[in-house]
Design a protein around this nucleic acid. Sequence first.
DNA 1: ATAATAGTGTCTCTAAGACATTATATT
DNA 2: AATATAATGTCTTAGAGACACTATTAT
Lengths: 237, 237
Amino acid sequence: MSTEAEFLANYDAGDFERPSVAVDLALLSVFDDAVHAVLYQRDRHPAAGRWALPGTFVGIQESLDATATRILRERAKIEGVYLEQLYSFGGLGRDPRTRVITVAYYALVDRARCPDLGFHRLDIPWPGETGGPVDALDAQGAPLPLAFDHADILGMAIKRIRGKLDYTPIGFQLLPERFTLRALQTVHETILARPLNKDSFRRRMLASAQLEATGEREDSARHRPAELYRFARRSAV
Amino acid sequence: MSTEAEFLANYDAGDFERPSVAVDLALLSVFDDAVHAVLYQRDRHPAAGRWALPGTFVGIQESLDATATRILRERAKIEGVYLEQLYSFGGLGRDPRTRVITVAYYALVDRARCPDLGFHRLDIPWPGETGGPVDALDAQGAPLPLAFDHADILGMAIKRIRGKLDYTPIGFQLLPERFTLRALQTVHETILARPLNKDSFRRRMLASAQLEATGEREDSARHRPAELYRFARRSAV
DNA sequence: ATAATAGTGTCTCTAAGACATTATATT
DNA sequence: AATATAATGTCTTAGAGACACTATTAT
């Protein structure tokens, strides 16, 4: 067996046991002063009745990114949104059926783009980027029992975007194409769960050169209308 | 089939094809003004002759973290070092044998703790946290051909620790228990590939309250010896 | 006119960078 | 004494927070 081609022709993948690999998606949006995630109530075992992130097994000829994109397309009917790999969860007792390793992704969407999805309010019990599990609440504010380790996945997603927000304008992804600075600040404040200084927030955002004034103004409430901005892709100098 | 117990008793895992899952470890150290990684030259197909990160398949009853710890223990004979999950690589053409998904981890060590490991100098061609593949060099400065997508894994590891360094004293992990501020600064400068202001580096480190003066001094070179510091675990207030 | 929020100008405070000075070791 | 780096002190500068003031809309 000398060449790699010969090696591969004779390669026997063997019959050692392999884990199943899935992708679970934390599909997040921000509205009503809270971070929300899409959850589905499971109608079959295991964890029947509990609430779960949209997920699916990875096809044998499908990349991880493609699997995450497929969840977005098939379950949420959207594409072109912010999507990033989060973390892989491979504990032994995650799924009582069999060994399942999940590669978690998270996506950020403007809720107006997908009004039919079942978003549920998240209750984040820790400050800053402390981390820890995050539960979801029903419309009455009662905790929804989550399936598997999905509270940990949601917690990791919140921790990640809180960290990113400090140096990345990730909040754009949660708003429509045109938005006011006030709306952007509200998104940041909701995710970080703390008030931000209005003046320095404005200055930072405008100084970042990632915002582009449209010249248009919001069709206002009962006060002076704010200018609408748009995300400016980092121009190639 | 009404209870979950019954469901599980009857559950058939099915015979759909599953990918293999591996853990690869970017075992990094900083010395000689460069970041170094442990690489092994593969002596068998696939990618025979190329250089690869230490890695292994995940056992069917072994968590991802446990697999990474096992690589450290079996291949590097060390434990108790900084270890963190990095990213999962699941492209289709990664391994010509069969579908392999790799969960990459990275670890940081003081080279003095593991003098027998084959560290190789990394050549990081991009500034800041731009990202991209990272190649390794042999002792003569010639590029070492890396196996699979390991240049991408190394690139992701460098990007991650550069980002962490801005708000985390991760550099401690690469030094012996007692170290001078100058040594710590050199580690930071090497990883970030840019000079740092000595005064403000001192101030930042001392202000972080994560350093503890030992009262001892280095057994010096030909100049005033610097005070030795030690990492102070964030005390519970 | 009044209410409400948008947007600007300026002062203060903090932290980083720059630089000068003093301290302490080896040769 | 000369040299090299450690460690301290102070001035300057940049950015964040605070706050006052002006602008513009609906009612």
